[in-house]
């Protein structure tokens, strides 16, 4: 059992295991903090800056990303000060300039009383939360996609902007994207992610397409089991 610490969030006294983040502790206590880039499956990252909160430790008040900052005894957290709200409003307006359509973003904007962004709409779609890239690297373990460029030219990219050689077509990036930016479809035994095609495997028993061939090859490689083992779908196995 982890040691428990006590802190206050918006005046409410809370106990949480040491090592949890403010965001986790708040969520457990039913206190809502908007967030876009954090994901429990992934290592703390802190990029979108929506989850900023104001903390006081001793004398000084400062803003921290609640999805990274860990709880500590005697910590005072405020999730809704004017300073915090100003950062959030700026962040959401900036993100709306990249994507002013998606309901997830519109919802957060509404909560913050932001009707429209004052910045020119660039409609890039992707909000660069990085969940796809990090999932591919940290959870799937293949690092087929990454970022390219830096600053405002940063993009989620496949190597050389071409069909990614290491991709196993698992589709995790698609599921994890908060704004559904990465399209995926399956038709006639072919899965298409972005614009790249991946043939599917037919189940040896029931004859249904059930998984991309490259994914099964990958399973076979990491488990050291023969490929045939994976060529039957889970239902028939």
């Amino acid at each position: 059992m982890a040691e428990m610490v006590s802190l206050t969030i918006d005046g409410l006294k809370i106990h949480a295991p040491a090592g949890t983040t403010i965001l986790e502790a708040a969520t457990d206590a039913n206190i809502y903090i908007p967030h876009l880039c954090s994901n429990e499956e992934l290592a703390p990252y802190g990029a979108c800056r929506l989850c900023m909160v104001e903390i006081t430790q001793g004398e000084r008040a400062r803003l921290v990303a609640s999805c990274i900052f860990e709880v500590a005894d005697g910590l005072e957290v405020k999730t809704n000060t004017e300073r915090v709200l100003n950062v959030r409003r700026l962040v959401i307006e900036l993100l709306l300039a990249r994507n002013n359509k998606h309901p997830a973003l519109r919802k957060i904007a509404d909560e913050l009383g932001v009707k429209e962004t004052r910045f020119p709409i660039e409609q890039k779609g992707c909000i660069l939360c990085g969940q796809c890239v990090r999932t591919c690297r940290e959870v799937v373990g293949v690092s087929a996609i990454g970022f390219s460029g830096r600053g405002i030219t940063r993009k989620v990219a496949t190597p050389f902007m071409e069909s990614p050689p290491d991709c196993i077509a698992c589709g995790s990036c698609v599921y994890v994207c908060p704004v559904q930016f990465i399209p995926m479809k399956e038709e006639n035994g072919v899965r298409t992610i972005m614009k790249y095609d991946y043939p599917m495997q037919k189940c040896r028993k029931c004859g249904q397409y059930f998984a991309p061939k490259k994914q099964l090859e990958y399973f076979s490689k990491i488990t050291n089991l023969p490929l045939e083992h994976f060529e039957t779908c889970v239902d028939c196995r």
């Binding site: 802190g46 990029a47 979108c48 800056r49 929506l50 950062v87 700026l90 962040v91 900036l94 993100l95 300039a97 990249r98 910045f119 020119p120 909000i127 660069l128 990085g130 970022f147 460029g149 830096r150 600053g151 405002i152 030219t153 940063r154």
Partner: peptide, 20 residues
């Protein structure tokens, strides 16, 4: 704007918009 790493929103997008 050119040197921002591009990880976090306020710097990546904010400096860009301010520049505009």
């Amino acid at each position: 704007e050119e040197e921002s790493c591009g990880k976090c929103t306020p710097c990546r997008e904010g400096v860009h918009q301010m520049r505009l």
